[in-house]
Write a protein that binds this DNA or RNA. Sequence first.
DNA 1: CTGAAAGCGCTAACAG
DNA 2: CTGTTAGCGCTTTCAG
Lengths: 342, 342
Amino acid sequence: MAKVTILDIAKELNLAFSTVARALNDHPAISKTTKEAVRMTADRLGYHKNEIASSLRSGKSNIVGILVPSIDVTFFSSVVHGIESVMNKHGYSILLYQSQESVKQENKGIETFLNSRVDGIIASISLETEHADAFKTIQKNNIPLAFFDRKLPNFEVPSVTINDYIGGFTATEHLIKAGYKKIVHITEKRNLLIFSERKRGYVDALRKYGLPIEEERILSGPLSIEFGRQGVRELTAKGIDFDAFFTLEDFTAMGVIQELKAMGRKIPEEVGVIGFANEAFCNLVTPTLSTIDQQTLKMGEEVALLFLKILKDKELPPENRHIVLPPLLKVRESTSRGLFIE
Amino acid sequence: MAKVTILDIAKELNLAFSTVARALNDHPAISKTTKEAVRMTADRLGYHKNEIASSLRSGKSNIVGILVPSIDVTFFSSVVHGIESVMNKHGYSILLYQSQESVKQENKGIETFLNSRVDGIIASISLETEHADAFKTIQKNNIPLAFFDRKLPNFEVPSVTINDYIGGFTATEHLIKAGYKKIVHITEKRNLLIFSERKRGYVDALRKYGLPIEEERILSGPLSIEFGRQGVRELTAKGIDFDAFFTLEDFTAMGVIQELKAMGRKIPEEVGVIGFANEAFCNLVTPTLSTIDQQTLKMGEEVALLFLKILKDKELPPENRHIVLPPLLKVRESTSRGLFIE
DNA sequence: CTGAAAGCGCTAACAG
DNA sequence: CTGTTAGCGCTTTCAG
């Protein structure tokens, strides 16, 4: 009932408490008999190693902090799932913090991690984050840091990302090859590398295939279903012609589809739509939604693996510092004029 | 760069290190001047309070463990989102552990939490969990424990749940009132309280409205889209008549809908379908899916609030030990013969 | 193979 | 208002 320590076990067995400590940590210089005796009485007394004392002494907490905008978002919950599973297998626990897309919260999270003496931090920055100050503090304290997906430009930190440029390019190219010519792109108004890269891919794909880049076909807003609907209405009202949409993520694409349906436009015959993220619902909606898969689970696993390497080797050779996963094109009904391929 | 402690600050200012400690903790018996001086040099030296040392000494970690089957599942990520937001506001950090629906992992998680000396544990049990042994260990160690959603029967622990019985009843009653008479229920083959309660609600609703309870209209399987499809095929093959489905969760309902569509049956005119959970896709699919909302965010916030009370008062009066949220009926197209209400 | 002893950085009496 | 002191429960030398 009352907390039992190695001292209690030591007394019970007439051993020095340091011997007990070694036995519990499976130290090679302890006899099998002693180890077994110690383990048995530990179990009998209901002993639980005090990791806090252990951490204080050893300087290792076996905890890594994970900082994400919001665990509520499928993408992040999926990546965190992957990270936790891998880190857990390697004896690490996860301290979770949500920035709620706010720099202030993000800094609070970093402060908490620093105070908790986490062994490392894995983060994906908030939409508001513009400079690296808080993250530099992490480095100043010699705490390993890695980014996934959303990272800061001009700030050298190991990371796992997907190639958003290729993603944007592939999505757009797919539309072009399906015969669409007047392709609208909907992006975020806040400037985040992943979004600007997708847009850059869109622009370059148009360029490569000799299609004009019309500024009025690039819409910026707050990402949401509603902004997708609004986009379609706006273009229609302004009389701007279109025959396809590439949106920065899937929810916006759904908004586009809903509005197009409401207007009686046929998808994919008259208008093609492709999203980005491969949300669970892409396969369930009608028409099923073409999109770009971000390999979320793999991203989580990769960043965990990368991180374990950093924890071991401290400094990584430059060629191993950045893992860039290829985005996967998922062709579904919403862009399949004629034939349908999944 | 090297770790700075209160001792460093004390030296710098010619103070006793305990004075520095008090100043940093905003102790009332310290002069304003001293506090300010301490804070300034703390900032200047880049001091970060060592929470580990603090926890060891005070016996409080300000960390709560959250044990969930998988953060990957919308329901859980949403609840965890709510929990983290609230606990964070009250100065607690979250240690996250996934049981992956396995008892073994669940026990490992509990062990980790115990070792980490968390101040409390909030859990939702795995599908495999059948007895309370591991959770009793938590109580034996005097660590506050609360369940949300999935809990053990015959094991008295504070909890926040929704009334699954009412949920099942409401869903079924809704189908009956819409004129459906041959209602199939699909449930989980593994025995979990939340699922058996939903089923009990289904049975009682049929009974109340004088409809026969046919065992062959109750299907048990592994929850999945595929099992939904399979269910429809099976019933059809066996020649068992039906005009509506109430499934234990939304994915299974989607399977049912997909198979019905493939068979050319009209929804909701010929067959009505209602799910459970109110997943994000319910509003996006065609037809939109009627379902029962579980108030996930609210559940997270409520369990966090309940937990803060436990941490404060240790023992809760019985009438406050269990919060049961009402399930919310969401009527959408999949059950709306004639008129459509959202 | 086992024991003795120091100390990680902080909290919280107790003293002044 | 500030200083002194004794640990929290472990890890880790250094001795035997």
